[in-house]
């Protein structure tokens, strides 16, 4: 024998609530320098592992493969190649966006890394995998040291 179960769903009770959480993330040692270069100089930087001959973008202070400390910082330019992309028609809640947004994984040329970012100044139907794109920065006075200091990537003319 066991206790009777609820058969009327109106008898099930609930307690509503939310997780009151607020976060402040430090950029860290590598992140601080990476975003400072973007903000002040409009430059994308990476760190190089000379043992493994890899260039990390975004930069890290260590090589994940050989675990050596990385201290060689390089300017990697602003151009990259679209590795893959998607077109978003709905926002995070599933509501329809006014304007579809193209998000791409962009491998920065000459490096082993890349950035996830938006594609702009392009017709949707023209965006292709393998396409060459370059970073478009916000005006210096609007930059605040975040990944959004890059407005988007646009096709290289």
């Amino acid at each position: 024998m066991s206790i009777e179960k609820i058969s009327d769903p109106r008898q099930v009770r609930h307690w509503p609530g939310h997780m009151e959480a607020d976060y402040i993330y430090t950029h860290g040692i590598a992140g601080e320098r990476f975003f400072k270069e973007i903000k002040e100089n409009g430059r994308i930087t990476g760190t190089r592992c000379k043992h493994c001959n890899l260039v990390y973008v975004p930069p890290r202070i260590y090589c994940e493969r050989c675990f050596e400390k990385l201290e060689e910082w390089i300017d990697v330019g602003t151009k990259g190649t679209i590795q893959t992309f998607t077109v978003a028609y709905v926002d995070i809640d599933g509501s329809k966006l006014k304007q579809p947004t193209t998000y791409a994984m962009i491998k920065i040329n000459g490096t082993n890394g890349g950035l996830l970012h938006k594609i702009g100044e392009a017709n949707l139907k023209d965006v292709k995998i393998g396409m060459q794109v370059e970073a478009v920065f916000k005006p210096k006075e609007e930059r605040e040291g975040s990944v959004n200091d890059i407005k988007h990537f646009k096709p290289v003319k």
Binding site: T26, G28, I29, A30, Y62, C66
Partner: peptide, 27 residues
């Protein structure tokens, strides 16, 4: 209370120190 390093960077520093003290590498 506050360290500038990200959690990942802290992890790396501790792990690297442990490996070095054992005379080993990630391999």
């Amino acid at each position: 209370r506050n360290l500038k390093e990200t959690g990942k960077e802290l992890c790396y520093e501790a792990t690297k120190m442990a490996l070095d003290s054992a005379g080993l590498t990630l391999k």
